[in-house]
Amino acid sequence: MYSIQRAIRNFHSTLQTPKLTKVALHPPKSVEVEFADGSVFSLSAEYLRVHSPAVDSKIRSVGGEKVIYGRRHVGIMSAEAIGNYGIRIVFDDLHKTGIYTWNYFYHLGSNKLSLMRDYIKMLRKHGLSRDPQRQK
């Protein structure tokens, strides 16, 4: 999945993304981004976390696919600007290595329904859930 995400980001970065006009962090639930073409996207913490552009140790490999699961209630703790091209988001599961570029935000917003549908299908395929595992 990581290599697919990288290919998508690389392909998308060659397209002309409208200029970012606004980023608003609404911790712990979402990030809102607005672009010069009038597009406004509200992206949930769960959606951003499972589509993180970084690979980390909290990913489970299932049948050769990289799957992030159990993040329905993940929250955003903070974010920091990275140059003039993106932000690093710190989630309450301590994931903080992904840098979300303006191009990637536009990609995530423009493709939100299909990406989330594909994510839920993949979870079902592997018998996993968006909900966190219960502590025993």
Score class of each variant (00 low, 15 high):
1 M>K: 09
4 I>Y: 08
5 Q>C: 02
7 A>H: 09
8 I>C: 01
9 R>V: 05
10 N>R: 12
11 F>C: 03
13 S>N: 13
15 L>T: 08
19 K>G: 01
20 L>A: 11
22 K>I: 00
22 K>N: 15
23 V>N: 00
23 V>T: 08
24 A>M: 13
25 L>G: 02
26 H>Y: 13
26 H>C: 04
29 K>G: 11
32 E>G: 02
32 E>D: 05
32 E>Y: 00
33 V>C: 14
34 E>T: 15
36 A>H: 06
36 A>W: 02
37 D>L: 13
37 D>C: 15
38 G>H: 11
38 G>W: 08
40 V>W: 01
40 V>K: 14
43 L>G: 06
44 S>I: 02
46 E>Q: 12
50 V>Q: 12
51 H>T: 06
51 H>R: 01
51 H>E: 04
51 H>A: 00
53 P>Y: 11
54 A>E: 13
57 S>Q: 10
60 R>V: 02
61 S>A: 03
61 S>W: 06
63 G>V: 04
65 E>I: 02
66 K>F: 10
66 K>H: 10
66 K>N: 10
67 V>L: 09
68 I>W: 07
71 R>E: 07
71 R>K: 12
73 H>Y: 14
74 V>D: 09
74 V>H: 08
74 V>P: 06
76 I>S: 05
79 A>Q: 13
80 E>S: 14
81 A>I: 00
81 A>H: 11
81 A>R: 13
83 G>L: 11
86 G>P: 10
89 I>P: 11
90 V>C: 01
90 V>Q: 05
93 D>P: 04
93 D>W: 01
93 D>K: 05
96 K>I: 00
96 K>W: 00
102 W>D: 07
103 N>S: 15
104 Y>P: 10
105 F>A: 05
107 H>N: 02
107 H>V: 12
109 G>Q: 04
112 K>P: 01
116 M>L: 15
117 R>I: 05
118 D>V: 04
119 Y>G: 09
120 I>Q: 10
121 K>C: 08
121 K>N: 14
121 K>R: 13
123 L>Q: 00
125 K>L: 15
125 K>V: 08
126 H>S: 03
126 H>G: 02
128 L>E: 09
130 R>K: 09
132 P>S: 11
135 Q>G: 00
